[in-house]
Design a protein around this nucleic acid. Structure first.
Lengths: 197, 197
DNA sequence: GTCTATACTGCGATAGAC
DNA sequence: GTCTATCGCAGTATAGAC
């Protein structure tokens, strides 16, 4: 391994450590209730080092956001590669999001719950991010292919995914009695029934 | 009018002025991006006076929250009084929320979008507040009465209201091409189809 | 590149006159 | 009850040694 790639690996490591702590703290207490000293204490990385890797607190939030937009995008890539039909794609996307929510609730809390625009002024709302655009595109394709009834494409997308997203929110808010996956079958049955051709 | 009630009216007036400004600013920029000086500038009420009426910034947020929980509750009262059937109640509740969103977007932005728990540590998530509890109760009643198929009551509630709530979020995020009410018929058709007996 | 120590700023909250 | 002036502090970001 070259010394250049070793250095950039170390660089990468520190960034990831900081982002992991930021994820934990932002998801737990929110961006504004998390101070740089909090991140220093939780990550073990010093103030100076943090500011060496990130220009300011906002950039930490932005890097974190980008990291997990990409994570979700990769998830959707895998599903689209494996399943050609829109129905199965939608099903699997919801299942994948449910799984992600239960395995890494902090990721979903930060991606879905946080009001990103309050601390990243120039970022578009989450629902305009690539993964969510692609979820709508899967539904639009299903409509073109005749799997889904003709209707407004936004209405279709919301009918398919809206309930699941709401359930994720309930899960993160701790108002659910059982695990997310326990609700999936009934929920999916309703969602698909409302749009199928 | 007695001097006591005159005084309490004045007292009421100042509180409302402050709450109106807080609503505007919290909805626009968020709680943490709104300073007391911002509220002073926007409301024309002085710092000292604000702190005479509210113990701290958090109490402003709480009073605002209570005011609009009650506003929504009154809305639901009116609907329940007029319509006995669950189907019509659900329909009318969604219509009322759409109307409120278009007429007073700041109210809905503050009530639905804000992460209340980040600045009011002891408050329950919005979805546990009275209006949203009652929406779920309307659906549960519909199930008991045989208007809605037997299923998990949370799944039913989410299937009926989830899509509409998602649309409100889209509206507030400015990603909708048309007005909310334009989507209502198609949306309601899907939602009700997914749960009706 | 990483650390400690610290400068600077802006805000929440109070004091105290009227 | 309302105002202006101000205190104290928390927190971001930087300076500068190593």
């Amino acid at each position: 391994m070259s010394s250049a790639s070793l250095m950039s690996n170390r660089r990468f490591q520190v960034r990831e450590t900081v982002l992991d702590s930021a994820l934990y703290l932002f998801a737990q207490k929110g961006f504004f209730n998390t101070s740089i000293p909090d991140i220093v204490a939780h990550s073990g990385v010093s103030t100076g080092s943090i500011y060496h890797h990130f220009s300011d607190k906002e950039e930490i939030a932005r890097a974190l956001y980008d990291r997990h937009v990409q994570q979700m995008d990769v998830l959707i890539n895998a599903i689209e590669a494996q399943y050609p039909q829109s129905e199965m794609r939608c099903r699997k996307i919801i299942l994948a999001l449910f799984e992600l929510t239960e395995k890494e609730p902090m990721v979903m809390a930060y991606m879905l719950h946080a009001r990103h625009q309050e601390f990243m002024p120039d970022v578009a709302p989450v629902c305009s991010s690539r993964p969510f655009q692609r979820m709508r595109e899967v539904v639009a394709k299903g409509m073109r292919d005749g799997e889904i009834r003709r209707m407004d494409s936004m209405v279709a997308a919301v009918s398919v995914f809206g309930g699941a997203m709401k359930f994720i929110q309930f899960y993160l808010d701790g108002v659910l009695e059982r695990s997310l996956s326990d609700y999936f079958d009934e929920l999916w049955c309703n969602a698909w029934a409302s749009v199928r051709a």
